[in-house]
Amino acid sequence: MIRDITLGQYYPIDSVIHRLDPRVKLVSTLIFVISLFMFKNFSGYIAATLFLFGIIKLSKVPFRYMVKGLKAVLILLMITVVFNLFLTPGKPIFEFWIVTITDEGLKTAGFMAIRLTYLIIGSSIMTLTTTPNNLTDGLEDLMRPLSKVRVPVHEIAMMMSIALRFIPILLEETDKIMKAQIARGADFESGNIVQKAKSLVPLLVPLFVSAFRRANDLAMAMEARCYRGGEGRTKMKPLIYQANDYRAYALNAAYLIAVIVIQRL
C-alpha cells in the first residue's frame, strides 16, 4: 500500500541519461527550470517542449512514471490556475455574474500550468534516472566551493544521503507495523479526527523506537568503520566526466542560447 509512492524514486534501467554524470543532470535541471521562467511568449515553450520530450525519449522511462509525480501536486496546480484565471486584470473576454475571465488571465493561467507541469516532469526525470547516492555525490561536488566559506558541505551531503536512504526503509517499516496492529484489531481509518489521531499512537511509537534504533545502529556501524567526516576522505567511485557528459553540457548551452534568441525575436 504505502510502498506505491513513487515520487522521486529511481527507475532502474540502462539509458544514455542514466549513465550521465549526476552533476550534468543537476546543472541541466537547473538550466531547464530557469528557462521555464524566462519565457514570455509561446515560441519559448515550443523549444522547452522539444527539449523535454527529447530527454524523456532518451531516458527510456515510461511516460506514466513522470506523470505520477504530477498527481501529488495536482491540487496546487489547479489552485494556481484558478487564481490566475479569475484574478488577473485585463481585457475581459468572458463575463458571468461575478466571474470575469480576462485575456491576460487566460494567458497567465495557461503559462503557469505549463510551467509547473514541466517543472515537475523535468525534476522527476532527474530523480528517476539518478540513484539517491549519485545525486548527493553530485550535489556535494557542485557545492564544494561553498566549503571555503565554512559551509559544512560534506556533512550536508551525508545527511541528505542518509535521509534519502531511510525513506524507503521507514515506509516499509510503517507498512509492517501497520499490518501488525491491524492484525490485532487496530482501526486506522474510521472515526473522527480525535479518534484517528489516537489510533496513530500504536503506529507512531513503534516507528519512532525503530527509527532511533536504526539511527543508533548506523552511527555505530559508521564509527566501527572509522568514519570521521569528509576531511581527506576519498571516494570509491569518484565522479569523472566522460565524453557524453561534455556533449550534454554543450547541448545545454545550445538550448540556453536558443531560448535567449527566441525570446529576443
Binding site: 509492517k176 507495523i177 499490518k179 501488525a180 496492529q181 491491524i182 492484525a183 490485532r184 484489531g185 499512537v201 500504536p202 511509537v205 513503534p206 523506537v209 525503530s210
Partner: peptide, 16 residues
C-alpha cells in the same frame, strides 16, 4: 482477524 491471529516476524517491534 479476531479468529485468525497472526504473529509477525520480530513481533516485539510492534509493542507500544
Amino acid at each position: 482477524r479476531s479468529k485468525v491471529g497472526l504473529v509477525f516476524q520480530y513481533p516485539e517491534h510492534q509493542l507500544f
